[in-house]
Amino acid sequence: MESIGNAIGNVLGPNGLRIFTNQQLGFTSLLFFIFYFAALLYMIDRGRKGLKIPKIRRIAGLDAIDEAVGRATEMGRPVSFSPGISGFVAGTLAAFGIIGHVAKLVAKFDSRLIVCNRMANVYPVTQSIVRQAYLEAGKPDAYRDEDVRFLTEDQFGYAAGVVGIIHREGVAAQMLIGNFYAESLIFAEAGNIAGAIQVSGTDAPAQIPFFIAACDYCMIGEEIYAASAYLTQDRVRIGTLVVQDWSKQIVVALIILGTLTASYAALVGAPSHFVRDILRLW
């Protein structure tokens, strides 16, 4: 009994729960983590039971996807898609949801989709997504293996490759959705010079200004994570977006409260303030 107690104490004690070592945010992080996942499960349950779920607001970038594909079809030129330059991170996972939708549209309209991959481990996934989309659209023969490409894992080699494809193939619509770094502006400007309509979205804050300046539509940050929920209007997925918003509201409330109490503490010369003390609860 004592050894079990010791073992539990070791796990839950100061050196046990790893979250405790994280700059003394300790217990609060654990509570937030538990709340977040409990809320997720609650909203997933609500969605499955058909109970009321709030609606998503309009996201211009996602609405523009249909317009972009339509335009490319009219012009008889291909659509280009880049799912970012990172591996299986959130931005790339979000891009998977959009590639499927774009590929179905392209297959439906008998247009052409070129997907350029930088990461080798993302390439088989995008390949199967596009192939599956053509299959579901009833046009498996229209799928071309060489249209879903792995270029190179070199960042600027990939950028050069994509620019070359944009100009040689004369793409009429370009979609840049995922996690990007410095090469983002190269893609966007090349698309501009080629006269392509551009829909972009990234969760890399440093690249958002470049996309806003150079692309026709830009989804900022977490808007790309809403893509699959928005495009499918699946209630369960929308429910998870609601949890995102709730957690943001909690964090904003803490920020406001923390700012006020910290300012008051600074004013009266107190060494600490109660919000910070609560957040560092052991």
């Binding site: 977040y36 996942f37 997720l40 997933i44 299986f88 991170v89 959130a90 931005g91 996972l93 979000a94 998977f96 949801g97 590639i99 499927g100 996934v125 199967s128 997504i129 192939r131 599956q132 989309a133 969760d203 804050p205 958002i208 900022i220 940050g221 977490e222 994570y225 809403a226 699959s228 369960v236 997925r237 998870t240 977006l241 949890v243 995102q244 957690s247 943001k248 964090v251």
Partner: peptide
């Protein structure tokens, strides 16, 4: 940057959770 990063972090948590719970299966071509 903090505001955008906050939104992205919380959003990516939801994105990963959706993939973990099998709600989103983009990587499986579904």
């Amino acid at each position: 940057v903090r505001g955008v990063t906050l939104g992205i972090t919380l959003g990516s948590l939801a994105q990963y959770a959706r993939n973990l719970f099998g709600i989103e299966r983009g990587y499986m071509a579904e």
